[in-house]
Amino acid sequence: MSVLLLADHDKGELSPATARLVAAANQLGPVDVLVVAENPGNIAASAAQIAGVRIVQVVKAAETAESITNSLESLAQRYQSVSASASSVGKDVIPRLAAKLDIQPVTDIVAIEGANRFTRPIYAGNALETVTDPQPKHLLTFRASAFRPAASGNAAPVENLDLSVTSAARFLAAHRTESDTPDLATAQIVIGGGVSVASAEGFQLIEKLGKTLGAAVGATRAAVDAGYAPNDWQIGQTGKIIAPDLYIAIGISGALQHLAGIQGAKKIFAINTDPEAPLVKIADVALIGDLFEIVPQLIAELEKSGIRKPQ
């Protein structure tokens, strides 16, 4: 009944969402983590600390879809489930592996209903599909934001695997956004900006509000397309899925593709000039008005009140 879970990582560090994925996978059985990285040391050490992890297996290799898929494939026969995050890496490799193993995968899982019953959103989250998977092996991706993190304090053994994996695709260059804002997918508070923020400078105002609250910053597709915000800030059906305790949407209309990414938010607050905007309609708290007037005043109010940020 054991589960193999692929670990996501960036810049040599384990993804902060991993503890949530371990918790999800653990509902199906004991969890072994696989790390595929060029510099796996720190990543594996962090994964070994997550409660519920039985062993961390490490493959030192380039991080292309083919090399990761091949690494997973060589271990797959020992596991009843092979799983990953519904992240850009998990989405890239799990379907590829599934086709190689002739298994129909179940992806973007938001609830585990039983040993082989899963719920996943379809139609941008406007419907939920519950499926039974009678196949001998399950290939799965989980939405990290839908699961609570496992505890830490474990010391699972780390085992280096001597696999030689090949890849026709070659990594050439990373283009990343240097930003010290918290991880969107796991943040407790997220501030989102829409196209009406009107410029990259406008987004500095949104970021400043984010800093005041210790929040992550996101954006709509329209804002990203306009070049005001980087692509990895996009929230929605085709961007990141968030599930913070509080989402503050600033100058965002609330198109259904955007709403797809924020359904897991506990509370939604909105600032918008239009009282009829769909986002205002679903917001728990809305303030009608011009964001350029409201946001600077809001930052001042919050600073004055000496608000304590969540850790």
């Binding site: 406007n126 519950t130 196949q135 005043q297 608000i307």
Partner: peptide
Amino acid sequence: RLTIEKISPPAERVPGKTVGSVADLASAIA
């Protein structure tokens, strides 16, 4: 290969309220 058991609508959000000032918004956030 898979059996679709059911398709269900997502949970509906309960409607909220509009506040009248930045101070009210700040205290709701706090």
